[in-house]
Design a protein around this nucleic acid. Sequence first.
DNA 1: GCGATCAGCGGCACG
DNA 2: CGTGCCGTTGATCGC
Lengths: 257, 257
Amino acid sequence: MDLQKAKTLVDAALSQGKFIILVGHCKVSYSGRAASKLSQGERVVLIKNDGTFLVHQTKGMAAINYQGPGAVIETEWGATEEKIPTLTVSALRKKRNEVAERIDVQFTEIYDVGSHILKDDRTLQLTGSERQLSDLLMQDLHSIEAGLVPIQQESHVRKGLIDILAQDRQGRLVVIEVKRREAGLDAVSQLHRYVHELSARKGSPVRGILLAPRITANAKTMLEKEKLEFVRLDYEIGSSATIKGLEKKQHTIGDFG
Amino acid sequence: MDLQKAKTLVDAALSQGKFIILVGHCKVSYSGRAASKLSQGERVVLIKNDGTFLVHQTKGMAAINYQGPGAVIETEWGATEEKIPTLTVSALRKKRNEVAERIDVQFTEIYDVGSHILKDDRTLQLTGSERQLSDLLMQDLHSIEAGLVPIQQESHVRKGLIDILAQDRQGRLVVIEVKRREAGLDAVSQLHRYVHELSARKGSPVRGILLAPRITANAKTMLEKEKLEFVRLDYEIGSSATIKGLEKKQHTIGDFG
DNA sequence: GCGATCAGCGGCACG
DNA sequence: CGTGCCGTTGATCGC
C-alpha cells in the first residue's frame, strides 16, 4: 500500500477515534522509563481509542513495545538514511510526575491499514481469583482447623492487607495468607511480615498459616524455620470456584502458649 | 463480512501459518487455571503463527483473554441460543503437568479478517534493565561507600540470587540489592531474606544495602527496623544507562562490629 | 492519588 | 525441570 494513502487513512481514523490496526515493515524505538531499539522487520501495531499503543512481533504473547492508555498518537513523514521515504507513527506520553515516554514506529512499507469504530462496554467476569477463594474460606474457617473463627465475623471483607484474620481455640491470633497458585519464598516473606508486625503490635504470639495448592521446597524450609504453617488448598474452578479439600501436611506447631 | 467467507479465510490462513487479525462482534469464554466469561461486544483478536492468541477490547493495554505460544487454533460452526449462526474460533492448550486450557471466541459477526505472512527475526535491544545497572555499579562499588570491594573479582557475582555481594572496609559482608524503580515492602523483605540467610550461613554479621531511586515510607520504616540501609540511586537512560549519583540518605548504621 | 498486592501474570536465566 | 525474580510489568482495590 502507498504510504501516502496509509497516512491519510491513519490520520482520518485517529480523528474519528477508531481502533486502528497497522501491518508493515518497520523499525521501532522507545525511550522513557527505559530505552529500546528494534531494527527492521514486519510487525503488527494496534492503536486504541484510549491511546493504548501496542507493537507485536510474530512470536510471543507480550507486545514488544507498548504504551498504555493516555498516549497521544502522531504520524509524520521522514526518510531512512538511504533516503527511502518513511511514515513514522508515534505514541507520546507526558504525565505529571512521570518520565516522558515515546515510541516511534518508522514504517518503510505498510501492507494493511484497518480501522473500525468498535462498541464494547462489557467487563470480564472472572472466577477463581484469590479474593474469591478467600471469601469461600472465610465461610468455612473450621475446615482449616477446628475451632478457628473469624476475628471479625461481620464482614467477609478482608481487613487491611491481611487475607484472613482469625482466632484459634486458644485465643491466639491467626493470620492466614491465601495463594491461588504455588507459594514461593515471596509468599512466606509476606506472611512473615504480617505475623511479625501484628505480633509486635499486640504484644502476644501470632500464628501464621499459608494456604496454597503447593509450596516450593525452599519456601517450605523457610516457612518451617520461621515457625509458620502450611495447609494445602485443593480447589476447583467450575461455573464457580469450590474448595475441594484442605490438608495440613504436618500437624500444628503445637501449643507454645 | 459473510461468516462463511470468514471461516474459509481463517482456515486457509491457519494452514499457511499466517498472522491473523479478526475484528468482529463476539462473546468470549475461558477455562483453565481460572475461568472467565465476557458477553457480547466488538473486539479484535490476534492469532500468531506460534499459537499465541490475544483478545483485545477497545480499552486498556492488557489483552482481556489470552493464550501463549503453543496453543492449537480451531474454527467451528455453531449457533446462539436464539439460533443465530456463529463462527467460534478457539485456542486449545494441553500440556503435560499443566491444566488444560481453552478460549472460545464465538463470533456472530465478523467485520474483517486480515492475514499476513510476516518475517521478523530481530530481537529487542533494551537499555536500563536492573541487570545493566547492576553491572555498572559493580565497576564502581566505591561510589556507594568508600572501601567497598566486590567479594569476587568475576564480572557479576551472582551467588545465589544476590545482585551484588561485596565486602566493606571492616571486612563485613555486604549484600546489595538493586531496584530500577521505587522500592516497596517486598524489596525490603527480599533483602532481609538474603542478609538473614547469609548471616546464618557465615555466622557473622552481614550488612544489607537497598539501592533504588526511591523507597516508600513503610518500606523505609521496615528497613530501618531491620537495621538495613538505603542508598538512593540516581540514574539516566540515554544511548546507554549511566549512574548519575548515589546518595546515602542517612549515614551508616555505624560500627556494630 | 498513593501504596500495597494480585495476576489465568509472562518471560528469562540459572541451578 | 524446578525455582526465583525481573518487568518500560499492568490492573485493581483500599485508604
